[in-house]
Amino acid sequence: MSNVNMIQSLNWALHDAMEADDNVILFGEEIADPEGGGIVKISAGLSTKFGSRVRSTPISEMGFMGAAVGAAVAGMKPVVEIMLMNFVAVCMDQITNHAAKLRFMSGGQTSVPMVIRTMTGSGFQNGGQHSDFLEAWFCHTPGIKVVMPSNAADAYGLLRSAIDDPDPVLFVDYLNNYWTPSAPPTRGEKIPLGKARIHGAGTDVTVIGYSRSMLDIPPVAEKLAKEGISVEVIDLRTVSPLDMDTILTSVKKTGRCVVVHEAVKSFGVGAEVSSRIHESLFKELKAPVQRVASNDSPVPYAPPLEAAFLYSHADIEAAIRKTLA
């Protein structure tokens, strides 16, 4: 079968989950077919097939996120699309104070089995309020899981597992993956949450990425391989909870590590990964763990600034060389 993009694989995942379980329902802006089947058509065809289980909502994230939390508490499995990740800010209370905490605050008597799907990424001149990777906000919130696939096959298998999960899951897509074909998923095959994937085995340095950075790390690894530098690339896939077994096994072997993400550098996922590696492997490390991330500013609109905001392949290469120096 030929390669597919993430729009196709996510559409399949939603379709197959809705077919498998009548409790799976979709909320989001413009997601029903009369409104276009979603801003990038991820839910195309689903309202035609599944009717009112696919609900186009008003532009009122606080309202429909709250409705989804209520539906989940009542036993449904809502999948909510937040059109762009920055818009989670207007429904943070429903996500972090309700969805993420109700199990704990009710002594385990309440489940909130919902998925919040959203998309983001710089490079599209969408400006500061439409481009951020905000995963660290949610990784810092106990009670919600954070899944960030890098390719079409992982997106399918992880979304199926996220919908099955008894707890709330934030599922973040990188916009460019919608138009970047990769190997197709096997319909029906679920990928467990919390399990990273070794993208390419190596022995000299471990480079950890997820989502967008998994488009940038492999080309750098291939370039360095020609010099005899062997890079082991890990795709986290689930950012919270972290698959520390896979990370520590790899870094114990290589003794060196670089973490790469598009989100801004300070207080980010890279800091958490780096800290945990230092806590566990301080004596085995041959160099301090390096972080490659974006500039600590809002995402700029002007193209030269947007380019300067994001890390470059040269930054990844330099960080790898620094661990080898």
């Binding site: 500039n295 600590d296 500013s297 700029p300 002007a302 193209p303 030269p304 600034l305 380019a307 300067a308």
Partner: peptide
Amino acid sequence: PPPDAREVKRDV
């Protein structure tokens, strides 16, 4: 003209 790339550090 487009802004200079160094301006990404300004006005945060």
